[in-house]
């Protein structure tokens, strides 16, 4: 007797995922493989090949397709880890994080956290950070559009309006605080050169990723600049940014530094335009499907 459509799809997906099911027996729980034979018994023999082998086409394609996505999204991480170790990481990730989005574009997004939390990769924290950098650049590439707040716009602001000036990061901006020299490793790999020895840093390296025109960029920020920028996320006034810069004893010195930072951000295209009368109208990212 053929199972109904829902049961059949559940069964076939379980076989492809090689999922185990759990059953309760009194007080104990038993795990067992979803019976592949049950599905096979509902399949018609193919023209020439074995039914089992034909079912395996789906099982193997599932893994190889997602592995290809990871390889494409994390090409520099793959080059850094080498073929065998990357395949090991990819296989573990695919089992741990089945895709839950309609668009495979976002399948790789949990890889940095997976590497940071899963042995043996967690023993080398630079791996997760290299992945984080690579995915941040990919995110910046196709993140939401917004009109950039240019340096010319900044210089046209009246001194009286500076305190209430809204500072809004462009939707493409991503901030990373790296605890290792992952950026140097990533740059070396990207250039096709030998990466430096991995090392933990004495203090975090503050990185900012954004999209300038159509090209993703990354650079290092000082602790003061990073503090100021973080105060601006998701949107704050210039006065709020200055107030967050507590390492400056003199607020005038903080304001002076903040003006410099702001000019640099505006020149690089890290800021988005916003209506100063609508404090909460900072640009929103579209929700990916």
């Amino acid at each position: 007797m053929m199972a109904n459509l829902a049961a059949l799809q559940h069964q076939m997906q379980s076989v492809i995922l090689r999922r185990t099911a759990t059953a309760q027996h009194g007080g104990s729980t038993t795990s067992y493989q979803v019976p592949r034979d049950d599905l096979l018994s509902q399949l018609r023999p193919p023209a020439h090949a074995q039914t089992d082998a034909m079912l395996d086409i789906y099982c193997n394609a599932y893994r190889s397709r997602l592995a290809e996505v990871l390889e494409a999204d994390l090409a520099n991480l793959s080059a850094y880890l080498g073929k065998a170790l990357f395949e090991h990481a990819a296989a573990g990730y695919i089992e741990a994080h089945p895709s839950d989005r309609q668009n495979v574009r976002w399948f790789s997004r949990n890889m940095p956290d997976f590497l940071a939390a899963t042995a043996p990769f967690s023993n080398w924290p630079q791996m997760a950070e290299v992945a984080r950098i690579e995915l941040a650049l990919a995110d910046a590439f196709d993140s939401a559009n917004a009109e950039t707040f240019s340096l010319a716009m900044l210089t046209s602001i009246s001194p009286d309006d500076w305190a209430t000036l809204m500072v809004v990061p462009h939707p493409s901006v991503r901030r990373i605080d790296a605890l290792t020299n992952a950026l140097d490793i990533w740059i070396a790999i990207d250039a096709g050169t030998e990466p430096p020895q991995a090392k933990r840093l004495n203090s975090p390296q503050h990185l900012i990723v954004w999209r300038e025109a159509t090209t993703p960029r990354i650079r290092v920020m000082s602790i003061d600049e990073a503090t100021a920028f973080d105060a601006a996320q998701p949107a704050s006034t210039f006065a709020d940014v200055v107030a967050a810069m507590t390492s400056f004893e003199d607020q005038r010195e903080a304001a002076k530094a903040a003006v410099g930072f702001l000019a640099g951000w505006a020149a690089a295209g890290m800021l988005a335009c916003v209506d100063t009368e609508a404090a909460n109208s900072h640009p929103k990212q579209e929700t990916p499907a």
Binding site: A6, A61, R65, V69, D100, F107
Partner: peptide, 10 residues
């Protein structure tokens, strides 16, 4: 099904 996408044409 069940919130998972196998990214295949089944």
């Amino acid at each position: 099904v069940h919130g998972i996408n196998l990214h295949d044409l089944l």
